[in-house]
Design a protein around this nucleic acid. Sequence first.
DNA 1: CCTACCGATCGGTAGG
DNA 2: CCTACCGATCGGTAGG
Lengths: 219, 219
Amino acid sequence: MSARNRASTEDPRVVRTRAAVVAAARDLFLRKGHAGTTMEEIATVAGIAKRTVYNNYADKDALFREIVGDAIAYAETFAHELPGQLASDLDAEDLPAALHDLGARMAHAILRPEIVALRRLLIGEARAFPELARAYFDRAPGRVIDALAAAFGTLADSAVLDVPDVRRAAEQFAYLVVGAPLDRAMLVGEAPGAAERAACAREGVETFLARYGRAPGRR
Amino acid sequence: MSARNRASTEDPRVVRTRAAVVAAARDLFLRKGHAGTTMEEIATVAGIAKRTVYNNYADKDALFREIVGDAIAYAETFAHELPGQLASDLDAEDLPAALHDLGARMAHAILRPEIVALRRLLIGEARAFPELARAYFDRAPGRVIDALAAAFGTLADSAVLDVPDVRRAAEQFAYLVVGAPLDRAMLVGEAPGAAERAACAREGVETFLARYGRAPGRR
DNA sequence: CCTACCGATCGGTAGG
DNA sequence: CCTACCGATCGGTAGG
């Protein structure tokens, strides 16, 4: 049985079918939600019969978890890359430019349409799939906050920042930079344009620096 | 016909029935969502027959819009009261205390379980009922931001605050004070406890004052 | 005669 | 892999 499973998993037809199902389901679930998407629709878009979808996934919820799990992993890669470039050897001169760069990249990444769509889906389905919403929270925003807190701690040790509570400062940085446009995107749909996103990030970083930056480092 | 309609609207039986339907529907829709609530369930909880629900509301969506409209109006009253107490005759001495009071009241109001539940419902149903999500955005967070911006403008005119862009400052104030706990509540469910909410509000206001407060007014 | 209300059921849909 | 079909559910309605 294990041999048969392995063989069927490697069968190129199975691989192609699964890829088509996943692509169709991802598009439909993210655009139309869980209840708004039918298994029939997924099969049609994937170009296969409904029965074939059930040959690969036990039921609708299993397919949904697979798709959302993939999307969370995708969001996690962004979360992981974001604060990585905030080098620990910054001096006070470089700090504002480095934080503005980080803020701009965060705003760009977090307000991507795919991420906004994923967040809306997760919040809407949080009652039915609480473990998925929590997994996203822990692996995407949670990971960004953790990394920011660690970076701020290092910068505080080298007296580039004056941060009494690194975790609080990390949250403030994140929500100063993307809070307003993200909340708007959740409720109104479309995120603000690139110019507004950039301005919000820039001004957010300035407010952060006003509290936590050391005076010599401000421009 | 107008006389007949008026008579039936004032019939105490009708009033009582409608109140029971609205109470049941509000509870169920906010706890279990639109698709997760059946008309049968609403009728049962209200203690009447399903047909009687349909005698008062054309269909499920009409009832849903009524309930959500009421909830938005409720949220709007909070939004309206919030920045009202930020008197325009503040001097620099009183400013920090007044802003901390405002921040604490905002955190308390916005993170109420009913408001959190309403926001989750609206975000989840934003695809199906975009006009409701937008109405909430305009009348609750939008109104708070507007009122904050107006208040900050007055305080800037009397040189109590130094605010180049009142709208931006208003958004930063709001999301510094509630951004992190609100985002967590949307995804993870329960909002943080009172102590964490208060600390987040307090530190948020401090960061706001670091940028926009005039030095003499800081304590 | 009208309004409010109820028990019973239908038409259509979607997961499996 | 498809057609056909089922058991169940639910929004909405007709008769009394």
